[in-house]
Design a protein around this nucleic acid. Structure first.
Lengths: 352, 352
DNA sequence: TATGGCTTGTGTTACGTTTCACCAACGAAG
DNA sequence: CTTCGTTGGTGAAACGTAACACAAGCCATA
């Protein structure tokens, strides 16, 4: 309703002084003055107008987070930790849900930029960042979450990611170590950097063990449009059914993430397969439900709290000292294999 | 970078005209002029500074959504649909996660208000809205999601909710119809309107059938602090174990929501109970995973897409024509019982 | 008694937009 | 030839804040 001037008038001081009080320059006035101003602020329930402040300062204390899909609790967890990290440093967080659609992401990025946000975190790990060139050219800093960024350093200023390939390798090696030879993957379209990384990791681990991962053992969502985030569990269910209906069904499955894995549970049971007796399943992410599922899901854990902390720190550093431009600022963190009850030694005997 | 004046200069017109072009007042100029302005805008990649616009206009085109917890996919679904509905009407949506903490919610509400947002949707269904009096007095419109609002009409301007009591009744009646007599509830602290409603519904249905729901059959999270949203699944697991360890264990469980129900699956299995053979479980919400779970979860569905649509429509109406103040604008929608595999006729015989 | 330095402020300008009153030019009508 | 209305604009003020240069009062020192 009423601005800084009204407060100033009632406290008998100038607007500048009120501004100083608000912004913590307490050494510039007598305690008595400060007390009086604070009193009026309290009494009027005055809050600074953020739009005016932002207009004046040219930027605000907010970060943006663009996530692929709220349908996957993993991203809920990420949002939670990113927000906490941002808030600790005095930044607000705006969360958007873009379903990995470049147009929607561009729209949000534009909206954020013109609302004064200068840094966003992007979770969609697209194959190309070209569509963001416009906004980055106009000053928006983009941090990549969930993707190793080697090229496109002109667009992306920093990044944190679990080592996707290593994650894929860990999953596959675990199954191989249990004697599995026919290993398949269940995924939505493998058209993001992170998914490609995971797939390649599985492939590499298998190759090292003298095994193959033929394309038709990598189920990619059939004719789903988009990336299959919204319907992940459903796709996992359909995918594993198709794979298990083959003449040479796999004995081990690496799901592209835990939602697909949980869906795969349902699909395997639809066909009467027992987990882990008949089919072993490994997930990726380690969402809360992985531990609750029956059997508890063996999966690759991403250390989300630490990753969130890092990426927020790096992005804020980029924003606040946007001059050094030196350190590449790309961190790869190590995923961890969490062995639970959904994987078991293969029972080749019964097939022989 | 450069503002409306730079565009005006390059197009050889005044800033006012550029403003008119941007805001669609095309009848105020020649097509030729408009074309020239548009050309310069395109060429400069000019975007209006939202802060300045907002400062001038006093409010912006955004709605806020304060959700209890991103840890529960139900709220992810709500966020998704609310956002879609808002976007359709030209509004942006800011999503915040407040863990039902009145202080955090107040903080966010204040932040939103002072950033120009005039309408928020609140999902936490607290017992009292008093803590919001300040912000509503300063003009913030608050819509309640997930709660029937009878009092506090001075604070809350509109609301949409599933009929919580009816939902509870449907769940209990289903179990009663299957012959269950010892029915218990698993929940976090029953200290929100929605949870109280669900509990009362269960109680009423049981009373009508001549059954009792003693307090010690309503497990409320033990010594958990807060509302147990973050750890819902874990609490469900612990709670059902305590209930099933009693001398007179229940044969039917109504969980306060699907996350608790999924946790209850795990807890029942921990003790060797078979679902639904030994224990029947009913959830609430119908999240995606309810269908995927093994067995698929019998639950009470909330029609989220329709509810999101309604509440956004009502809130925007309140904002845009904030004068009529007439219609109460409280809608109760009907929940639906979805029978799946987690409930079964009681096997009293074996106990006898 | 000057001089300087500290303390405790104040006045003004600028941020980029929208809006509203105003205006020039021109054709039509009286 | 005047008056009027319409078309196609323009200029300036205002929104609420932060920053910067400046200043009044006062004390210590030379």
């Amino acid at each position: 309703m009423s601005g800084i001037h009204e407060v100033a008038r009632r406290a008998g001081v100038s607007a500048s002084t009120v501004s100083n009080v608000i912004n913590g320059r307490h050494d510039k006035m007598r305690p008595e003055t400060k007390r009086r101003v604070l009193e009026v602020i309290e009494q009027l329930k005055y809050t600074p107008n953020i739009a005016a402040r932002q207009l004046k300062l040219g930027q605000n204390q907010s970060l943006g987070l663009i996530i692929p899909s709220v349908a996957n609790p993993f991203w809920g967890l990420v949002a939670h930790h990113v927000e906490r990290a941002a808030r600790q440093r005095g930044y607000n967080l705006l969360i958007c849900n873009a379903e990995r659609d470049p147009n929607v992401e561009t729209h949000y990025a534009e909206a954020m930029l013109s609302s004064g946000i200068t840094g966003i975190i992007l979770g969609s790990s697209p194959l190309s960042f070209d569509y963001l060139r416009d906004v980055t050219a106009r000053g928006l800093k983009v941090a990549a979450f969930d993707q190793r960024v080697d090229q496109a350093k002109d667009v992306i200023t920093c990044g944190v990611s679990v080592d996707q390939e290593l994650g894929g390798m860990l999953a596959a090696q675990h199954l191989i170590g249990l004697g599995h030879k026919r290993i398949a993957m269940v995924s939505g379209p493998i058209k993001t950097k992170s998914r490609i990384g995971r797939r390649n990791g599985v492939k590499m681990a298998m190759a090292r063990a003298g095994l193959q991962l033929p394309d038709d053992m990598v189920w990619q969502g059939g004719d789903v449009v988009g990336f299959g985030d919204l319907e992940g569990a459903e796709l996992g269910r359909i995918g594993i059914r198709e794979l298990l209906s083959r003449d040479d069904p796999p004995t081990g499955i690496v799901a592209i993430n835990d939602m697909y894995a949980l869906g795969a549970y349902a699909g395997a049971r639809d066909l009467g397969f027992h987990i882990p007796g008949d089919i072993s399943i490994v997930g990726f992410d380690d969402i809360i439900l992985a531990e609750i599922a029956q059997p508890a899901l063996t999966t690759i854990r991403q250390p989300v709290p630490a990753m969130a902390e890092m990426i927020v720190r790096m992005l804020i550093a980029e924003i606040e000292e946007s001059g050094n431009a030196e350190d590449p600022s790309f961190i790869n963190v190590t995923p961890q294999l969490i062995v639970r009850g959904s994987t078991n030694a293969v029972r080749e005997l019964q097939n022989a």
